[in-house]
Nucleic acid binder design. Structure first.
Lengths: 109, 109
DNA sequence: TTGTATTATAAACTATTGGTTATATAACTA
DNA sequence: TAGTTATATAACCAATAGTTTATAATACAA
């Protein structure tokens, strides 16, 4: 079984998740909207199901899939340690631009 | 070339990033601290370098690697759309617990 | 220059995975 | 019941990726 990181590494699976973010949908809906083959969608849905990112609800012959964002929280938590870093990056950029601006102003003086 | 999602899907690479979060370090440092083979570390560092997540600084025979969290911002942005969902999940849980508490209080009354 | 450290690269192997095609399963419909 | 719709599964293929072993490249030290 794939962990959450591996599951979201696959572009088609992210597209499926993004689609389910809009609304619950059947396999057929996903096939239509994403332009993927039905077996492929079913296969991706299986791994999404097994990793706990989606839930199924049987409705006659259809399976209605819905999002469960829960597992993504782990990824978010891991990312949080890095958030400070790229903010620092932005801060550095801002300082740099600020410096340039200051220089220009002084030259224009 | 692997995209950011694929790069962080690999556990050893996440360990390398986590290590670089603490301090810049040479390849040898990483090999020691993570207990991975030197060629493996070098290979992972290559993909990390190519995806822009680390930077190298040559210092004599050593290569000092440092973190660049920038690319992780894309992942964070993608995740942000889902944040509301798991918050809703937490809200639902909170509401549930609240309900239980209320019930207990009423029973105790 | 010769030897030693440090790191990168090449080659090869194995396992895994995304994808397709074909088929089975199950529920609805006429 | 027979046919149709919706989905899952199996078998297979091609490509890729992680890992190891062996070797090359580069800089320092004696």
């Amino acid at each position: 079984m794939l962990d959450t990181y591996a599951v979201i590494a696959e572009p088609s699976r992210r597209r499926i998740l993004d689609r389910l973010l809009i609304s619950d949908s059947s396999v057929g809906d996903l096939v239509q909207d994403l332009g993927l083959s039905q077996p492929l969608v079913s296969k991706h849905l299986r791994t999404l199901r097994e990793s706990g990112l989606v839930r199924v609800q049987i409705e006659a012959q259809r399976r209605i899939y819905s999002l469960d964002a829960g597992p993504l929280e782990d990824v978010d938590e891991w990312l949080s340690a890095y958030r400070a870093k790229w903010n620092r990056h932005i801060d550095a950029l801002a300082a740099h631009l600020d410096q340039r601006k200051k220089s220009r102003e002084e030259n224009g003086k």
